[in-house]
């Protein structure tokens, strides 16, 4: 790339002054406008809704102060769904992270054929989550599901208590779909981190005679700390808003055993009580902002 290239075509690149400025404004203006219009408006509207109440007869929205918020905090179903969401998020994150690290280590080599394996490993990511839900529903069906069949054969589940009829196993059924679909995402991020690691410290460790596990715990893991932190943050946010799998696989059942907060908000939305649905959604938002802020600070995440 030579100077001549630029001066030659300089005239055709005569852009408005603000585009050539060193100021961040022109670079960030488009995205900011987009996010403000389509991001802030829904947020503001939801907040507005959460201070209103629907009159079911006139269908007007009347100002109701903190009615919806008080209702939410005294709603045992909300607390139960929050608890379910937290359990779900925590278990899924832990399993996806652990599996993600192990599989990434396994696939992190330049040997022949591993490129294909890495590509195949990403395949679950391209399946629409709604389809993933149906996929697992088909496999977990109590009568003809392939997964149910093997679980019966291994005596892990009794045919008298099919997987989706029991609170704990039903939650596991949804978790299984999530873990299947999103562990590959963790693998990708951690693989990328592994591949970007400098070689020297590992060579030094090898000379010092450190074994694989020591190297991993003392070198790899600390160096990957920040990669993992960002991965956990991004994944955690999505997990906390889990909707599709619950909707398709169990619809919150049995009872409300698998009802997550986001799904509960969806249910309320479906019945037309928009103000309360908005309030529940805002609780999701508030929890996420609070937790992720603490997380960013705690783990010194820099993007």
């Amino acid at each position: 790339m030579s100077t001549a290239t630029f001066t030659q075509e300089g005239s055709s690149w005569a852009l408005p002054r603000f585009m050539t400025a060193e100021h961040p404004f022109p670079w960030l203006a488009p995205i900011t406008v987009m996010l403000l219009v389509f991001g802030i408006y829904p947020l503001a509207y939801s907040v507005w809704l959460s201070f209103h109440k629907r009159n079911v007869v006139s269908r007007q929205l009347d100002f109701a102060g903190v009615h919806q918020w008080a209702r939410a905090f005294s709603d045992t179903r909300m607390w139960h769904s929050l608890e379910t969401t937290l359990i779900y998020t925590f278990v899924a994150l832990a399993v996806q992270l652990a599996l993600g690290i192990l599989i990434a280590l396994l696939l992190d080599t330049d040997r022949k054929g591993y490129g294909i394996l890495r590509a195949l490993m990403t395949l679950p990511l391209v399946v629409p989550p709604a389809v993933t839900g149906m996929m697992f529903l088909l496999m977990q069906d109590g009568s003809f599901g392939v997964l149910s069949f093997y679980l019966y054969a291994l005596d892990l589940i009794s045919p008298a208590q099919p997987i989706l009829t029991q609170p704990v196993t039903a939650l596991l059924a949804i978790l299984l779909a999530d873990i299947w679909q999103w562990t590959p995402f963790m693998v990708l991020i951690i693989l990328a981190g592994l591949r970007a690691l400098p070689k020297e410290p590992f060579e030094a460790a090898a000379i010092d005679g450190a074994n694989g596990i020591q190297t991993f715990l003392r070198l790899t893991l600390p160096m990957l700390r920040k990669v993992i932190a960002v991965a956990v943050l991004i994944r955690g946010v999505d997990l906390f808003r889990i909707y599709d799998y619950v909707y398709i696989i169990t619809a919150g059942g049995p009872g409300t055993a698998t009802e997550t907060l986001s799904f509960y908000a969806g249910r309320i939305y479906f019945t037309g009580d928009f103000p309360y649905a908005a309030t529940l959604s805002l609780i999701v938002l508030v929890v996420l902002i609070a937790v992720s802020n603490v997380f960013v600070r705690l783990f010194k995440v820099r993007f």
């Binding site: 009829t165 609170p167 059942g253 049995p254 009872g255 409300t256 055993a257 249910r267 019945t271």
Partner: peptide, 15 residues
């Protein structure tokens, strides 16, 4: 569609 079948579901599934 919501309140009644949800509570009934809790009873029937032993939750």
């Amino acid at each position: 569609n919501n309140d009644i079948p949800v509570e009934l579901g809790k009873l029937l599934t032993g939750q």
